[in-house]
């Protein structure tokens, strides 16, 4: 297999290196002067393309951002999670562990369903933040929130338990970053507000029909 011969043809301006190099220098000096002028302005975020991160956290992240998980409380402060384990079954990374317990007498103001999750554990080091747990939850009880600063000093620091998830929820609510659950998209040929599919969609109302967004594995 022989290589094809390549004919090089340069214009005169290309051939003397300097003309194009000086044009290139013009581009970079324009950027330079604009940036120097910008950086001398007062204020934290002067050059628009660089954020001085730890001091300047004003960058807006999208409301759909998939960060650390939150357990949702409804407007009466009751936990929506019924401990069904659909999220654990839907997780591609198998990082969720849920234990279910029955609701006792007198706990109706704490838990919505007849069962609730006694233990909820997410291994953040395995989580890929895909959002499938949120999509498969029939009650809309788990959501991925805006928290992205998740580094820890040891493996144990990066495990998220139920109390951590509730804390995330409260913090997101205080900061006003809590978003409504994602609306299911319209399905072809279905009535408005039609059912979700496959990965499912979060139901809008608690106690709605129990959607078996099933992820059985063989």
């Amino acid at each position: 297999m022989s290589k094809p011969a390549v004919k090089k043809s340069y214009t005169f301006q290309d051939r003397i290196y300097l003309y194009e190099i000086i044009k290139g220098l013009g581009i970079t000096i324009r950027h330079f002067l604009a940036n120097v002028r910008a950086s001398l302005r007062p204020g934290p975020h002067t050059i628009p393309t660089t954020w001085q991160y730890p001091e300047d956290r004003t960058r807006e992240i999208s409301p759909l951002f998939r960060g650390a998980h939150m357990l949702i409380l409804d407007d009466q402060g009751r936990e929506k999670c019924v401990g069904c384990g659909m999220c654990a079954r839907g997780c591609p990374a198998k990082c969720i562990t849920v234990k279910r317990g029955k609701r006792k007498e007198g706990q109706e103001d704490r838990y919505v369903g007849k069962t609730y999750c006694t233990e909820f554990h997410i291994d953040l080091l395995r989580c890929i933040f895909c959002g499938y747990c949120e999509d498969s939850c029939p009650k809309g009880a788990i959501m991925l929130g805006p928290e992205f600063e998740l580094a820890g000093y040891s493996r144990d620091d990066c495990q998220l338990f139920k109390d951590g998830m509730l804390t995330n929820f409260h913090r997101a609510m205080e900061e006003g970053k809590l978003r409504p659950p994602r609306k299911p998209v319209k399905v072809e040929g279905a009535a408005p507000g039609g059912s979700g599919t496959g990965a499912g969609s979060s139901s809008k109302s608690p106690g709605g029909p129990d959607k078996q967004a099933d992820k059985t594995q063989q």
Partner: peptide, 13 residues
């Protein structure tokens, strides 16, 4: 700093 200013970023600060 010069490199950073050319490249639309900040450089050591």
């Amino acid at each position: 700093r010069g490199a950073a200013m050319i490249q639309d970023r900040l450089g050591p600060n």
